[in-house]
């Protein structure tokens, strides 16, 4: 017992003050929200050709990046002679509409992160059944991290539960493999109304690196209606928490 108390003192209190204070700083080389800053020379498609997931298309005034497909690998940044694309250290990527994940020159931050249903019913108590449906287990790992003392999402009444019957919604990771389709559907059907679906990671948003494989369904949206999209491969825990808090209507200024 004394040893446990001694260890507890040594480990200190580590829960971050966020969202009441600024979140921890992202690492120097962190690739967060992309910024499209320039025009493209006529006919240049270098970034589109190097992108592993066809996340980039050409627009009249510069490249257009779909963060729902992006793996944040920075291949486009390395290849671009014009420096038309850059990745900022901004962690805020989540949106409630798929279209808001597409970043154009001068795109605002997604304003539409609030979900009225979620704010009205779930703000004080939000229970989620997580369904892992064919990804690489990195998104699952970063969802688990939100339960550790540093992030402690229990502070906001957010918790992962074992049964879909106890849940207010499901949080899906992975592209939804053919082999997981039925299990995902049954889990969703078992959640009582009103319910929400949250797609975490580029796999769950768009199929990620497995997009268009015969074995997968290109994301949760092709099986169940998605209410919140959280891009990233995998998303940083802060990106997920930011999305969840604003989805529920918490004032987040950072």
């Amino acid at each position: 017992m004394l040893n446990i108390i001694r260890a507890r003192l040594q480990q200190k209190h580590r829960t971050i003050k966020y969202p009441d204070a600024a979140p921890p700083e992202m690492p120097e080389k962190f690739a967060g929200r992309p910024v499209v800053v320039g025009r493209c020379p006529d006919g240049c498609r270098a970034c589109q050709e190097v992108c592993p997931t066809q996340a980039i298309t050409g627009g009249p005034s510069g490249p257009v990046v779909d963060t729902g497909r992006c793996l944040f690998c920075s291949s486009c940044v390395s290849i671009c002679g014009e420096k038309a694309i850059a990745f900022s250290r901004d962690h805020r990527l989540a949106a409630v509409s798929r279209e808001s994940l597409v970043i154009r020159p001068g795109s605002p931050l997604p304003a539409d992160v609030l979900c009225e249903t979620a704010r009205k019913y779930f703000k004080r108590s939000f229970r989620l059944r997580q369904v892992s449906a064919g990804g690489c287990n990195a998104c699952e790992a970063d969802c688990n991290v939100l339960g550790t003392p540093v992030w402690d999402m229990g502070r906001f009444g957010i918790q992962f539960v074992a049964s879909p019957r106890h849940a207010d919604g499901i949080l899906v990771t992975g592209p939804v493999t053919g082999n997981m389709r039925e299990a995902l559907l049954k889990t969703w059907e078992a959640v009582p109304d009103p319910r929400v679906v949250i797609a975490v990671g580029s796999c769950a948003v768009s199929g990620g690196p497995y997009r268009d494989h015969a074995e997968v369904h290109n994301g949760a949206g092709s099986v169940v209606p998605v209410d919140l999209f959280v891009p990233g491969c995998p998303p940083h825990p802060l990106t997920i928490l930011d999305g969840l808090l604003r989805f529920l209507g918490y004032p987040v200024t950072w």
């Binding site: 892992s132 449906a133 064919g134 990804g135 992975g174 592209p175 493999t177 053919g178 082999n179 997981m180 299990a183 497995y210 494989h213 015969a214 074995e215 997968v216």
Partner: peptide, 8 residues
């Protein structure tokens, strides 16, 4: 197993 099979 096999639920995570994605054809890599």
């Amino acid at each position: 197993l096999g639920y995570q099979h994605r054809g890599v």
